Amino acid sequence: MRSLLPAALLLPLILAACGQQEVKAPADYALSGTIGGDWGASPRLRLALVGTGVPVAVTNDSGIAQNVVSTGVNMWQYGFDLPGIPGVAGVYQVVAFDDANNDARLTLGETVARNRLWLIFSPAAGTFGPLDLPESWPGGGELLPQMTVSRGWNVYDRSVALGDGNPRSVGKITNYDISR
């Protein structure tokens, strides 16, 4: 009986480790916003972190914890967990896509939408860029100008001139809205 006791105590821990990740409300994730627009009938909307790092490290990761919730016709709220430290300095975006083949991966040919906000990760404060993105990346070839960033995640709004507050250092990112 004594030899079964340690196994019996470990069983709940083993089962808990095998369980699914907790699904949170969209606003409880590190990055949140809305997805809008016409995605067709019954889309399977997912999100992916895409980008490029320095030195060359292309990211297309849709396996990050996320939650997409319909809030009406052609409107969804979502939450997405940004990695704590992506490993390299880089320029990223969270994109929405219709996972047409239901493989939980952003695949060439699937409908994609993004916005004009770039997520810049820097392991140290200082000057970042300039940077050309690979042509194969959605929206690739665009030049990111040289800018001053803080350590960690920064948001650069491409629709606003560089300067005070652009880019800005962020912890939690809200209103990262994406539309088709």
Rank of each mutant, 00 (worst) to 15 (best):
P130M: 04
G37C: 08
A65M: 13
P145W: 05
V23Y: 02
L108Q: 05
I120N: 11
V94H: 06
T111Y: 01
G109S: 07
L82E: 07
D38A: 15
Q21W: 12
R2S: 05
G129L: 11
V149I: 09
F97D: 10
G87N: 04
T127Y: 05
T127N: 04
A7D: 00
T111D: 01
L4M: 11
T71D: 00
A161Y: 03
I120Y: 08
S150W: 03
A41T: 15
V50W: 02
R151Q: 10
G139N: 06
N154I: 13
R46S: 01
S150M: 09
G19M: 10
E135R: 07
C18L: 15
T107F: 05
S136W: 04
S159K: 14
L162S: 03
I178R: 04
A8M: 12
N67F: 11
Q20I: 01
V160L: 12
V23W: 00
G84P: 10
V112D: 00
W76R: 08
G163E: 15
S42M: 07
A89P: 00
V23A: 05
G53N: 06
F80A: 11
N60S: 07
Q66N: 08
R2K: 07
G129Y: 06
A8G: 02
A113G: 13
Y176F: 12
V160K: 09
Q77M: 14
F121A: 07
V95A: 02
A104W: 09
G140Y: 03
G87C: 08
N67W: 08
L117Q: 09
A100F: 10
W137C: 08
Q66K: 13
F121S: 06
V56N: 04
V73R: 15
S70Y: 00
V58F: 14
G84A: 14
W39F: 09
R151L: 12
A8L: 13
G109P: 10
A57N: 09
A113R: 14
E135I: 15
G140M: 06
R168Y: 04
R180A: 13
P123C: 09
R46Y: 02
R44D: 03
P130I: 08
I173W: 00
I120S: 11
R168N: 03
Y29C: 13
A7K: 00
R116H: 09
G141F: 02
V170D: 02
A161W: 01
D38R: 13
V23Q: 04
P167L: 02
I85R: 04
G139K: 10
F128H: 01
W153H: 04
R46F: 02
S122V: 05
P6M: 14
D164G: 09
R105N: 08
S150F: 13
D61N: 14
D28I: 14
D81E: 09
T59E: 12
D103R: 15
F97L: 15
L31Q: 11
P43W: 06
P86I: 11
G79R: 14
G37T: 04
K172G: 00
P55R: 15
T107I: 10
S62Y: 08
R46L: 03
D61S: 11
A17D: 09
R151Y: 10
M147N: 06
T34E: 04
W118D: 05
P134A: 09
T174E: 08
L9C: 02
V155H: 10
Q93I: 12
